[in-house]
């Protein structure tokens, strides 16, 4: 079963890469656009530290590390689940009929059909910069690095859950295209340390739109600022959230009214 889906994912990734590379102007523009977006925010953080010594008690490299973690997680989400951005059109035009008639999981196929090569290329320098910044911070232990990677995985499960809920909303109410964009905008909360927010906002973005669990908790684990109990909370939250999202998807699917038939 897992082997079959890995093979399918690989095939979809190859097809998607071929499609991206055949549109060279778009390819270069999107890649360059992503670097511009990254570069400007990076410059903004540097500008902040040109005028101030700390942000909410964090030093320059620590704030940069939060920003890099945001970029890594956000890019991974787009790399693996890019298909969601075209899902509304699939449902609206009735093409989703062909997806559900395929002998594969419709949700897996819909989310994975557009593996983004541009995000993969963008991710390489970001990870390298994160490693460099990690060395500059200097005090991370093997335990911190291990906890960081594990928590990133939990974060990815939550992201998958958010994508599944967005897909369910689109099936349910075709106009809900902006649900995924609401998630993307919420992710920007993770660009900065959570301590800058008020307790109410922190609560909201920890449990309702769990950006702090997705980004800030892993980053804090790396910075050795995390109470280990958060590893358990993150694991439980990710498991429950993913399970809940699958339930929503199944319920949403019952509302699917094929547009083409």
């Amino acid at each position: 079963m897992i082997k079959k889906y890995l093979k399918l994912w690989k095939l979809l990734a190859i097809l998607s890469a071929g499609s991206i590379l055949s549109n060279r102007i778009d390819f270069v523009s999107y890649l360059f656009g992503k670097f511009i977006r990254f570069g400007f925010f990076f410059a903004f953080i540097l500008a902040i530290f040109a005028h101030s010594n700390s942000l909410a008690g964090y030093g320059k490299y620590e704030v940069i590390f939060f920003f890099l973690t945001f970029n890594i997680v956000d890019t991974l989400g787009q790399l693996f689940f890019r298909g969601i951005y075209d899902f509304r059109n699939e449902v609206r035009l009735g093409n989703f009929d062909y997806t559900i008639s395929k002998p594969v999981n419709a949700l897996f196929f819909s989310l994975s059909r557009a593996v983004d090569l541009i995000d993969f290329i963008f991710l390489i320098p970001i990870v390298l910069i994160a490693i460099y910044v990690g060395f500059q911070i200097g005090h991370a232990t093997i335990y911190n690095i291990f906890a960081y990677i594990i928590l990133l995985f939990f974060g990815l499960f939550v992201i998958l859950g958010i994508h599944i809920i967005s897909a369910a909303l689109i099936v349910w109410k075709t106009e809900a295209e902006n649900a995924i964009w609401l998630y993307r905008e919420s992710m920007t909360i993770g660009r900065f340390p959570p301590e800058i927010f008020s307790p109410k906002i922190k609560f909201l973005f920890t449990y309702f739109m769990p950006i702090i669990i997705i980004i800030s908790i892993p980053a804090k684990a790396f910075l050795n600022m995390l109470n280990p109990v958060w590893i358990l909370i993150s694991f439980l939250y990710a498991s429950l959230f993913l399970g809940f999202s699958v339930l929503i998807w199944r319920r949403g699917l019952r509302h699917y009214s094929s547009a083409s038939s």
Binding site: I48, H51, S52, L55, A56, K173, E175, A176, E177, N178, A179, W181, L182, R184, E185, S186, T188, I189, R191, F192, E195, I196, F197, S198, I201
Partner: peptide, 27 residues
């Protein structure tokens, strides 16, 4: 016509504003 989508779109803008408000508040 697409009121729900419009609401979600504006909510995005509200979140962006909230983030920047707190960044400047801290600084």
């Amino acid at each position: 016509e697409y009121r729900f989508n419009f609401f979600l779109w504006r909510l995005r803008s509200f979140i962006g504003m909230t983030l920047l408000y707190f960044v400047w508040f801290s600084l």
